[in-house]
Design a protein around this nucleic acid. Structure first.
Lengths: 110, 110
DNA sequence: ACAGAATATATCAGTCCTGACATATTGTCA
DNA sequence: TGACAATATGTCAGGACTGATATATTCTGT
């Protein structure tokens, strides 16, 4: 990876031990990122299905529009805790959350 | 709930808006606590199956024995993030984690 | 192209979580 | 029972995350 790209990504909160790790995440890291992405996508799907704006969802979960945007983007500054709490606030059950996690990556949300 | 009991529980990190909320958690709160408990139980089961001590698991996940104990106890100071990262470090797949989450509460881990 | 709404990105002070450490309790085996 | 290992509980400084705010960018209809 080009040095400039690493710098740019690091400035956004993504961390790498070495440049080579970028496309060679450890299995745990990869699984973690994928998990987060699935929950993020599902959050957006649920919000849109309810025809809520990010602002509206922010009120519902007592957060802010900007943080909701970061949740849906799977931003590294957002924890699984926050994502899951938001999903629960939107009425998702644990079973539905589990289903989301098992879904093949890229599949649309229920 | 008696004031003394509330105080004691609050000192351990559990928070209540009012005393009445103790046995009447909101659906989200209940789901969150249950989710945490399932992951915590599964973590202990996986560790024991591998015949690791808490100390050993702590080294594996770069944490400490005391924090591992707290993870397995579902302590309020432990996030889902930490629990899930620990499970992934023990080799659990996202699908297995999802399965754990769907399992009926109290069931033993796979 | 323009205006207004929705979403994305940047920054930051305060809060919460973390690992580490100390210590207490429980479990186990002789 | 006593010695030792394992687990539980308490505390805390430092770092990570949060909501808020400001601003930029993208989207949508006209």
């Amino acid at each position: 990876m080009r040095e400039s790209k690493r710098k740019r990504l690091e400035s956004k909160g993504w961390r790498f031990g070495t440049a080579a790790e970028f496309l060679h995440l450890s299995p745990e890291e990869a699984a973690y990122v994928e998990l987060k992405a699935k929950l993020a996508n599902n959050l957006r799907a649920r919000r849109e299905r309810k025809r809520l704006t990010q602002q509206g969802l922010a009120r519902l979960v007592k957060s802010s529009q900007s943080r909701v945007a970061k949740m849906e983007a799977g931003d590294p500054s957002v924890t699984l805790d926050l994502l899951i709490r938001a999903l629960l606030a939107l009425g998702a059950s644990n079973r539905e959350i589990a289903k989301t996690i098992s879904l093949s990556h890229g599949a649309s949300a229920s």
